[in-house]
Design a protein around this nucleic acid. Structure first.
Length: 288
DNA sequence: CAAGGCTCCTGATAGC
DNA sequence: TGCTATCAGGAGCCTT
């Protein structure tokens, strides 16, 4: 499941292998992969044809490449998506959804492969005057904690204003982007915060700690996963972006907490799981 | 309007 | 062995 570090690796790969190339033809092999392109697959392909892929940008888990001054190509990997640059002669992947062929002689093409089709590609209007070609559909996505423009004071103020719990807030892409279930659990473990801690109870220093730990978790993953991108493959494999040795909480039910030895617990939460150390991350008093 | 829950999808795995 | 049930989860959309 790609989170921010994995998506950043993909962005670098796109910048290296795709930006600047002219599209010869886009072929949509599965309509669901372009379902966020509201005008349909044919329109999607027509807009791409002849377009020059611009610089690769990322905000949170979204990627985009400007095509013109007013249109950008948007990509989201969802849970199982991959963007691959493959030799045009390579056999089709089992879950190949979109092919983008280029009008050059490099002999490679861009492929969107996605088993569960939670991800997808689409073309959207650009926020007028935005220098990076930010698509309007991404305007509600908050800056991520690796972005220089991330505003920690504003994030803290938003947490204090909300009547919700901290893990929900971490997964709310309009407050902070790029954090998914895995890194949320990891950052909360590092900060010794229980996932049901009310956001309104966080002090400013506590928010600072949490943001620091999010950056550390992401930075570690990026350092580990970002080393091998300089190959033909734009993406690392959906699974291989994670490094088990670096996980302290997620997926470690009944295994000893690396700080205190108490068995890590798993709780059903929002149709998924939360992993935490019951000793290091005690439940807030207010929860019954 | 804010908050919380539902839902899309397919393959791996567990359980019988 | 082969079937069914369960789980994984990002984020848009719906309900309360």
């Amino acid at each position: 499941m790609p989170e921010l570090p994995e998506v950043e690796v993909v962005r670098r790969g796109l910048a290296r292998w795709v930006s600047g190339r002219t599209v010869e033809e886009a072929v949509v092999l599965h309509p669901r992969a372009v379902r966020r392109h509201f005008a349909g697959a044919e329109d999607f392909a027509a807009l791409l044809k002849g377009a020059v892929m611009g610089e690769a940008h990322r905000r949170g888990k979204y990627l985009w490449l400007p095509l013109t001054e007013s249109l950008s190509l948007v990509g989201h990997l969802g849970m199982s998506g991959q963007l691959l640059v493959q030799p045009t002669t390579a056999p089709y992947e089992t879950h190949l959804r979109v092919r983008v062929r280029f009008a050059d002689t490099l002999g490679t093409e861009l492929r969107f492969v996605d088993q569960r089709t939670f991800g997808g590609l689409s073309v959207h209007e650009v926020v007028p005057g935005d220098p990076e070609g930010l698509p309007v559909t991404l305007a509600h996505i908050a800056r991520d904690p690796l972005d220089d423009a991330f505003d920690e004071d504003a994030f803290h103020a938003a947490l204090r204003r909300k009547r919700t719990t901290i893990k929900r807030a971490l997964l709310d892409q309009s407050l902070i982007s790029g954090v998914g279930n895995i890194y949320a659990d990891e950052a909360l473990w590092r900060t010794r915060l229980h996932y049901e801690r009310p956001t309104a109870s966080l002090t400013r220093p506590r928010t600072a700690e949490l943001v620091t730990h999010i950056r550390e978790v992401m930075g570690d993953a990026l350092a580990a996963g970002g080393t091998s991108f300089d190959s033909l493959y734009v993406n690392v494999n959906g699974e291989s972006g994670y490094f088990d040795r670096s996980l302290d909480a997620y997926g470690r039910e009944d295994e000893p907490c690396r700080r205190c030895g108490t068995p890590i617990r798993r709780r059903a939460w929002m149709n998924r799981s939360s992993y935490f150390c019951p000793r290091c991350q005690p439940a807030p008093r207010t929860s019954s």
